[in-house]
Amino acid sequence: MKLDEIFHKKKSRLSTLKSRRIATGANHKRILECSQCAAQAEREELEQNHWICKNCGAYFALDAQTRIEMVCDEGSFHEMNRMMATGNPLAFPDYEKKLKNLRKKNKTMDAFTCGIAKIEGIAVAIGVLDSHFLMGSMGTAVGEKIARLAEKAGKKNLPLVIFSASGGARMQEGLFSLMQMSKTAAAIHRFREDGGLFVSFLTHPTTGGVSASYASLGDIMLAEPDALIGFAGPRVIEQTIGRKLPEGFQRAEFLLEHGMIDDIVKREEIRTYLGRILKMYRKGKQS
């Protein structure tokens, strides 16, 4: 093993340990309430049930760390560009203060966490957008990390899996944020043109500039049940057309019916489902 690899391993083990400590820290509530039915549940009980409400079946929003632990093989995740932080390109009032508070609360520098990991024994480049950080909006740091992840996956010849959850572009970074749509779409497009497999996994909610850029460019498009996925938000559409939207509009099931995604995968089945795809993809490449 090369020297820098040893250090890399040590560093990533440290960061995993650190985040473990945070996840079980005192600032996390022990009793949580379902946003859909208001039923209360203990943290451990939710963890065992894949963060699905036992009462109504609603999915709790996952933070990046929990998503990674749920999907990847234990201890296989090596984070990349962990400290990448956005600036304040428009000098937007109070943005820096807001970022500072969110970084402290979420223990991440921004809304996107990414790295190299294994799923069912197969190495992948993986990224997760976290809706707990400014609605998972795509600012310059998020866009840069996504582009770098795609480039890394290309260089290392790894399949790329990204879980998205986002309100879209980040208002506080204005046109700089809009440009991340071009940056990420271009990077993912290049990765795919060079033969890479991109699995885009859409979770609740994926809208606006994220759904209208890299997240819609998956070779395979998947979604969690009932996830809201669309370009415009439902409120904006209702205002535009002047009437109520039909039940289930822009939900994952609606997108499947309209041919926009390949399938809906239940949370508890995601790991094995991805494993099956990745195994067949690898076999297909060898033969």
Partner: peptide, 26 residues
């Protein structure tokens, strides 16, 4: 802005915009 309508969403507004950006970038 792109049309925020019922049919536009059903027909994949996000997908169309994403594909257009990707196509143009290359």
């Amino acid at each position: 802005g792109a049309y925020p309508g019922l049919e536009a969403e059903s027909n994949g507004q996000s997908n169309a915009i994403a594909q257009s950006i990707a196509c143009m970038s290359a």
